[in-house]
Design a protein around this nucleic acid. Structure first.
Lengths: 147, 147
DNA sequence: CGCAGATTGACAAGTACCTGTCAAAATACG
DNA sequence: CGTATTTTGACAGGTACTTGTCAATCTGCG
């Protein structure tokens, strides 16, 4: 058995907290999005499309997901009339996703809720602490990305 | 539009890092588990069952998941001969999951890899930093749990 | 003891991701 | 110009979760 070093052990606690906070954040996001008829995934796609009509492949690259994942979410947004497909003169295969008025108002509603929620939570943790955690997590992420 | 406060904005960056690190950790876990014929989910279930034969409902409570999620993972472990179902004299409905020799050796293999991986990563971040991040994330998690 | 209520596993269906494969369309290049 | 390569959306199928429902069984209480 290879034993865990002190740091390794403390590191395991960090992992557990990351998983826990991630789960809680996802749940909070869904709660914020639900009253507008959205989920976290749908909200994120709408957020990207809000910057201008975009193809599925482009949205996927922006979000760091596969085309297939975005395709499914986009299809459900089209079904619900929050997004429409526009012909794309630049590429006959790839239609552009564009917000409908309904999609736009749903997005605005969630953004309003999200801003209030983030401000409220942020008020309870010091700026220095938030920045320190963000920095360390960024380093850890870079480390993980480098294998 | 409710504007994001400075802290609120910095907080948003923190969210993004949590999501990113979470995704990278999940990928790393799957990579660690794959050579042993496991996934992160299967590995976690085996880890709980390693403490002694347990019912699906008990494992679910331990892991903070639903019975249904654990049920599916457990079924796949049974299919692959890593776990067997034992009759439970205390409750005729709820059979106990128990490790087979094959399940045990797969678990040991992943645990060996995981310890080496955690030690290596932990060596690149100071103990103080790890503890600080863990503490802040724990606070944030508690805040989120209180709504 | 007997019954109401809680717990359990099974089943169905849904969300959010993934990989692999395919044909059509766009692009790069000799 | 034409062909090789890349990109794209669609489709199939898989993993890991969720909620809701059901009947069987266990438990607590009057």
């Amino acid at each position: 058995m290879i034993p865990l070093s002190d740091r390794g052990l403390e590191f395991s606690h960090l992992l557990i907290e990351v998983f826990r906070v991630n789960g809680l954040l996802l749940a909070a996001g869904d709660e914020l999005a639900a009253p507008a008829g959205l989920t976290s995934a749908r909200w994120q796609v709408l957020g990207v499309v809000d910057h201008g009509p975009t193809t599925v492949a482009e949205v996927a690259r922006t979000m760091g997901l596969t085309r297939q994942a975005v395709r499914q979410t986009a299809a459900s947004l089209v079904r619900d009339g929050m997004v429409v497909l526009q012909d794309n003169p630049d590429d006959r295969r790839a239609k552009r996703l564009a917000l409908t008025p309904r999609g736009r108002s749903a997005l605005r509603e969630v953004e309003r809720r999200q801003a209030a929620w983030a401000n409220e939570l942020a008020a309870r943790i010091s700026l220095a602490e938030i920045q320190a955690v963000t920095g360390t997590l960024r380093d850890l992420g870079d480390l993980l990305e480098d294998r």
